[in-house]
Amino acid sequence: MAEARLGWVEQLGKRTLGLIAEVGYLSALLVESLYWLVAGSFKRQPVRVSAVFSEMMRTGVSAIPIVFLLSFSIGIMLAIQGIHTLRTFGAESQVVIGIALSITREFGPLITGIVVAGRTGSALAARIGTMVVSEEIDALRVMGIQPVRYLVSPVLLAMLVMLPALTVMADFAGLLGGAVYSAMDLGISYAAYADRVISVLKTGDIFQGLSKSCVFATVITLIGVANGFTVTGGAEGVGRATTRSVVLAISGIVIADMVFTWFLNR
């Protein structure tokens, strides 16, 4: 019995240490990526602009259709639920307030984050993991090319630009979805809807969403990259890392969202 309990305690200790080590590794990665973004040019090892742009295309531009579609759907869904709930009080015309605030403060950044975590987080883990397995990372190192500068910094910068940009688009798409359903169900004109949205929203609501999206960008990038760099065990290991990075990135986003929202709304 004592032995079994010790085993359980040991397990807990081991996992806690593992978690601390992982957080430490992620922090080190973040610091190093930022270091190269800032100091790379002075050290004559700049982060290539062309690499940043191609990452922006890959992580941002090609995610536009899916982010638009999902945000639009969420907008419609919020309108349906909102109208249904508010009808109890006969206040269904107030649905616009609910849609405007929840889309910009919460759903816009969250949906964008989840979509990008699924697309980019997994792709990063797979790409870097494959490079680890085929010794490409070692090859970069021995050529005197810092893998973090060459592979991670461009992605981090691209994500920090594109995730907020996608979030702005997601906000519009969500509001549009809400407008379409409200027009159909309540007969609110698009102009009246827009007026209402503009009068309700404050700059702070939009910025709350955008600042969250920057945190999500960092979380997705670091988790994807870290899982890629720590791949062991060949192709199977790459598969495991990819799955793990998606699950962790989405969990990370949701938890970070909760913490962030808590702090911002106190």
């Binding site: 090892q45 494959t130 490079m131 085929s134 010794e135 490409e136 070692d138 090859a139 970069l140 190192r141 021995v142 050529m143 005197g144 090319i145 060459y150």
Partner: peptide, 30 residues
């Protein structure tokens, strides 16, 4: 490391680049 060359067992060419881009990579960086 600029004075050292390494040829790895599996080649370790960056798979996202052409052979030419792989060969110019060290020149481009250094």
């Amino acid at each position: 490391r600029k004075q050292i060359g390494v040829s790895f067992q599996g080649g370790a060419l960056l798979s996202s680049m052409t052979v030419g881009e792989n060969v110019t990579l060290p020149l481009r960086e250094h």
